[in-house]
Design a protein around this nucleic acid. Structure first.
Length: 553
DNA sequence: CAGTGAGCGAGCTTCCGCTTGACTT
């Protein structure tokens, strides 16, 4: 006798949702990620024999496999709906290899909504062997590199550095990440700071005062930070004027009694567009900046939001919103902000990230009506509610109209010197009414901050309240934070959404890097490991290696 | 003679990516 057909997905919460959509017509099971892998204790790859591999059922998946095989025998149809990406295809092949092939069919869901599931169920395809083989190649490369090179570290560094207490390791991803951090440290060590001066004037127009900075003397631009070579601290551009303290003081004296006249007012109206909805990487970055949350904590909170049905899947590299998500955002924008904030057409964001696989949509509030933050607060906790609020606002903003910003540059002359004052006025907030992204910059000025200047006209005379010489020092490039490292890794195509948080933990656990007050600093050991790898395994620490491998698959 | 230490051998570690719990190495 035959029982209900089986449907296999990766995630348990997905299983629950899909089971509901399918009205109990299927027994939906979750395999919870990979079910097979190379053996942990040995290489599992026969290099002599055309890279033949040994794969076995993972120890913690044996009970799932037992139950699955029992049910598989009793049913006539097994539908595999693992994620539509390279790893998902491999899982599908692994599952199929354990049961009667004739019962197997493969479907894919690109969004977990009622429509998305129905659509997916109607389109049956074969398991894509090319994708499966691509993942096998990826797995073999990672295993060979990881196990072989780690051994080299044990037999060299570990032997000669008795104080090293942890097991050393190297790998395609962790070694590239470590190198990025070490390279930054080298830049910092090679850095020579430079001292330069400019003048700042407090000017008065009628009842209003504002400040302006010296930009030119005698037609020659005043040197700023970027005009200096970071390796020497010397000027790299001889067309600019470097003011010494004495010259700056002299200039103050000359200008104090001169006349201040507006020489030009330039106004530009610019559109500012919202950022795309969150991916795993951008969510981790923003949660670090706005909520001071570590990558790991962010993912733990996002997991809970996902399990309780508050957000869509949290491990994704796609900025695409499903029709449901777009409708949800547009409905709320219309009712809360009004039609001026709603573009005629939904915004579409192209994914720019390298090696994106886009198996899921962007991270957004689930459903077609986005649950209010209060509901999350009472269901989970305050921190998680704040993360949800971030996701909710970012999703809304991504579908709102552009902001209109007026940028004003006022030029002021005094004899042969030219000063500049910048102003910014938001004429129409658009998406800024919902959400503005934070910045990694030291000054921390976000896009929605205005700088108000009084109304000024050409040839207008001004009074000067104060004129001072200001000293500035060039700063070395900042150490990486978790957030800026994740950004860099993603930009270089190193690692995947499911591993960004792990990569940082690995290099910290191996004591290659310390994490002090959010700053990632390489240790002596980390630098030594990187140097050894650079000398003997150049391509491994080359950040292009991963990207090139991906293209080759 | 007894204690010390050089020298040797055995046994251990390790990758990336997919997914959750369990209690963090």
């Amino acid at each position: 006798m035959s029982i209900k057909p089986l449907l296999i997905v990766e995630s348990p919460s997905k299983a629950k949702t899909i089971s509901k959509y399918l009205d109990g017509e299927y027994t939906v099971m979750a395999c919870v990620g990979h079910i097979k892998d190379l053996p942990k204790k040995e290489l599992g790859v026969d290099v002599e024999n055309n890279f033949a591999i040994t794969e076995e059922i993972l120890p913690d998946k044996s009970s799932f496999m037992k139950e699955f095989k029992t049910l598989a025998k009793k049913t006539s149809q097994i539908v595999i709906a693992t994620d539509p990406d390279r790893e998902g295809e491999a899982i599908a092949a692994h599952i199929a290899s354990e049961v009667d092939k004739d019962k197997i069919s493969r479907v894919q869901f690109t969004e977990i909504t009622k429509e998305g599931v129905e659509e997916g169920m109607n389109e049956i395809h074969n398991i894509d062997q090319d994708l499966v083989e691509a993942r096998t190649a990826r797995r073999i490369i990672d295993r060979l590199v990881g196990y072989k090179v780690s051994r080299v570290l044990w037999s060299t560094l570990k032997k000669n550095m008795k104080f090293v207490e942890v097991s050393l390791s190297a790998g395609r991803v962790q070694s590239a990440a470590l190198r990025i951090i070490v390279e930054r440290e080298r830049l910092r060590q090679a850095f020579h700071s430079a001292l330069y001066y400019d003048l700042k004037a407090e000017l008065q127009a009628g009842d209003n005062s504002f400040s302006a900075t010296l930009v030119r003397v005698d037609g020659k631009r005043i040197a700023v930070g970027k005009d200096f070579d970071p390796n020497t601290g010397n000027l790299k551009n001889d067309k600019v004027l470097l003011l010494s303290k004495a010259q700056a003081d002299e200039l103050v004296k000359e200008l104090t009694n001169g006349n201040w006249t507006v020489s030009n007012v330039e106004e530009k109206i610019k559109n500012s567009n919202p950022k795309p909805p969150f991916t795993t990487s951008t969510l981790q970055q923003e949660a670090a900046r706005k909520l001071r949350s570590s990558a790991r904590k962010t993912m733990r909170m996002a997991q809970r939001l996902y399990e309780q049905g508050f957000i869509t899947y949290m491990r994704t590299d796609s900025t695409n919103l499903s029709t449901e998500g777009i409708n949800g955002a547009r409905n709320e924008i219309m009712s809360r902000f009004g039609k001026e904030y709603l573009p005629d057409q939904a915004r579409v964001y192209a994914t720019k990230v390298k090696n994106a696989q886009e198996a899921h949509e962007a991270i957004r509030p689930a459903g077609v009506t986005f649950v209010p933050v209060d509901k999350v607060r009472s269901a989970i906790d305050e921190d998680t509610a704040r993360l949800y609020d971030l996701i909710r606002k970012r999703t809304l903003a991504s579908q709102m109209t552009s902001a209109k910003v007026k940028q004003i540059a006022v030029f002021i002359e005094n004899q042969k010197s030219e000063f500049r004052a910048n102003g910014k006025v938001i004429l129409f907030p658009g998406y800024m009414a919902a959400y503005v992204e934070s910045t990694d910059q030291r000054n921390g000025v976000t896009e929605d901050q205005e700088t108000i200047l009084p109304n000024l006209e050409k040839d207008q005379d001004l009074n000067c309240n104060a004129l001072i010489a200001e000293d500035h020092e060039t700063k070395p490039p900042a150490r990486f934070t978790e957030a800026s490292l994740v950004k860099e890794l993603e930009a270089k195509g190193i690692g995947r959404p499911s591993t960004f948080a792990n990569i940082i933990d690995t290099i910290v656990y191996r004591t290659y890097v310390t994490r002090d007050q959010g700053k990632l600093t390489p240790t002596f050991l980390g630098i030594a490991v990187t140097q050894l790898l650079e000398n003997h395994f150049t391509s491994l620490v080359d950040s292009q290696f991963t990207a090139n491998m991906e293209n080759g698959l």
